[in-house]
Amino acid sequence: MELKDVLTPALVRTGVEVPDKDGAIRFLAQLLVDAGHVDDLESFVADVYLRETEGITGIGGGVAIPHGKSASVTVPAVAIATLAHPIAWETLDGDDVDTVFLFCAGDSNEGAREHLVLLSKVATKLADDELVVRVRHAQTADDIVRLMCE
């Protein structure tokens, strides 16, 4: 599975106005519902929050990667939002977050494998600080998809 298989402009938004972490998670989860990747918003959000109890998803540098394996997921995907203003999030470096990648994968064994593959691929990309800055400042969804899939 490649990022180009799970990331489309329909799942990316720039300059998003959200008040807090919950707003960011729900905004991105709704994108996944609207695009047909998730069939039950509340169940999926509950599964994302269940994962949040297991450890910090704010990886530092203004980036958070919340994720959840859920029976509500019909097709694995990644939704991305760059935020208009940083928001509070539990992070490894204690800083606020302005770029959020929300992963969705099914809760089957295959879903778990897809989940790990997606996390690994995105984590590898996000290890490049220059790329993170370029994503953060990208003006369009197409630009972000291109940057992440290069």
Rank of each mutant, 00 (worst) to 15 (best):
A24C: 04
G60T: 00
A79T: 03
R51K: 11
H37D: 14
L3W: 06
S108N: 14
P9S: 00
V38C: 14
T140C: 06
Q139L: 09
T57S: 01
P19S: 14
V97M: 01
L92R: 12
F27H: 05
V78S: 07
L41C: 12
G15D: 12
D96H: 13
Q139M: 08
L118W: 12
T140K: 04
R13Y: 00
A84V: 00
L119Q: 07
V38S: 13
L41T: 13
V145I: 03
V12N: 02
V6A: 07
V75H: 15
R13I: 00
V132A: 08
H115L: 02
E130I: 14
V117R: 13
T57K: 07
S43P: 04
V75L: 13
A141L: 08
G23P: 05
T8Q: 14
C104F: 09
T91K: 13
G111C: 02
D95E: 13
V97Y: 07
H67T: 10
T124K: 15
D128L: 08
H37L: 03
H115F: 09
E42M: 11
G61M: 00
L116R: 14
E17T: 12
K4M: 05
G55Y: 06
T8A: 13
G111Q: 08
R136W: 05
S120I: 07
S70C: 10
P86N: 03
E54R: 14
A141Q: 01
L83G: 06
E150L: 09
L41Q: 09
A138F: 10
A123E: 05
A29R: 08
H115S: 15
T74F: 14
A46F: 01
I59C: 05
L50T: 15
E90P: 04
L118S: 12
I59M: 04
G60N: 03
L83C: 00
V38P: 14
A127T: 12
S120E: 09
C104E: 07
G15W: 05
P86Q: 07
T82D: 11
K125H: 08
I144C: 05
V48P: 00
I56A: 10
S120V: 08
I59T: 05
A84C: 00
F27S: 02
P9Y: 05
R134Y: 00
G94W: 01
V38I: 07
V145A: 06
F44H: 03
T140A: 02
L119P: 09
